[in-house]
């Protein structure tokens, strides 16, 4: 199961869609199984956060391929609110791209994202530190290395920066918690999984770890994100809940509960929602018994007086 979790979404124009179709077909041919289409929010987040990627896609997708939707948010200012819970509703994966030291620290320690994706073509003024990145990895956030910038870019300085940043990240994280993805602006930036593993081993990551960076680690990201959205508190998930019982008797119950509602019962006490025990005739509480008894006695006394 090879994953490529960063394929930029080119937009909705006819040419762009054709290009994307070509990209998806090529990814399938190279042997990838899971692909995430990325929509990038640059600058301020718009008020409407729905994903521009249609679901299902407008062209036939190869059968084996699973297509996810992901968004990138630029962290330019650590004080602003990123509305991550809303983003999580609309996208399968949420990735953060820190631009400076402080936002990187924020993303590692407190932000609730799935992936930290760094722009490796620029030069970072400070070295990466293990305590910071280690905290992110311990929280289950993976760090992403995008290789296609180094292949396609015409600027030799960008290529050099990518290699130096990649080797540095591999050294600092001790090879743990890294995922490799393409971020290919065109089809030509995509490489076969084995080629990527070789690149990783040239950059100083063992080929076993390199393979993990394409298979195990991204899978754990995808599953973790899915559990966060679907399951109960990220712990319990129902894989198969069984079939629903035939709903003949349900109509009757509905009628009854409606009748109850008309009898000015609280809606919370309808037959369906309350456990079975509650529907039996209620025991009258002791205090109530006493009150009734007292009232009866008083009434009797009053009657006697009147007589």
């Amino acid at each position: 199961m090879f994953h490529d979790l960063n394929v930029p979404w080119p937009g909705a124009g006819a040419d762009a869609v054709r290009e994307l179709q070509r990209t998806v077909a090529f990814l399938d041919e190279l042997g990838y199984d899971v692909v995430a289409l990325t929509h990038t929010y640059s600058g301020k987040l718009p008020s409407e956060l729905t994903s521009p990627v249609p679901n299902p896609l407008s062209f036939p997708v190869p059968q084996r391929l699973r297509v996810l939707r992901r968004c990138n948010i630029f962290l330019t200012d650590s004080a602003s609110n990123f509305r991550i819970p809303q983003l999580q509703q609309h996208y399968d994966l949420v990735a953060a791209r820190p631009t400076d030291e402080r936002t990187l620290q924020q993303a590692c320690h407190s932000l609730d994202v799935d992936i930290i994706s760094l722009d490796l073509t620029r030069r970072f003024e400070k070295h990466f530190k293990f305590p910071m990145l280690g905290a992110a990895i311990a929280r289950g956030i993976k760090i992403e290395l995008c290789y296609s910038q180094g292949i396609l870019s015409s600027d030799p300085q960008a290529k050099r920066n990518l290699i130096s940043n990649a080797t540095q990240l591999i050294r600092v994280t001790r090879g743990r918690g890294l995922i490799f993805s393409s971020e290919a602006k065109s089809v030509l930036g995509i490489r076969a999984p084995s080629d990527v593993i070789n690149l990783a081993s040239v950059w100083g990551l063992g080929s076993e770890r390199g393979k993990d960076g394409l298979t195990k680690e991204p899978r754990s990201v995808v599953e973790h994100a899915r559990l966060k959205r679907q399951s109960f508190k990220g712990v319990v998930d129902i894989v198969y809940g069984g079939e629903k019982p035939v709903s003949i008797s349900k109509d009757k119950q509905d009628g009854k509960s409606k009748a109850k509602n008309q009898n000015e019962k609280r809606p919370g006490e309808t037959l369906e929602s309350a456990p079975a025990r509650r529907t039996e005739p209620k025991q009258v509480p002791k205090r109530e018994q006493k009150r009734v008894k007292k009232a009866n006695l008083e009434a009797a006394a009053a009657a006697q007086e009147a007589a």
């Binding site: 180094g150 292949i151 490489r191 080629d195 070789n198 690149l199 081993s201 040239v202």
Partner: peptide, 10 residues
């Protein structure tokens, strides 16, 4: 051989 492979990748 890794050099040749990486060069081909590029």
């Amino acid at each position: 051989y890794e050099m040749v492979w990486a060069a081909l990748t590029y």
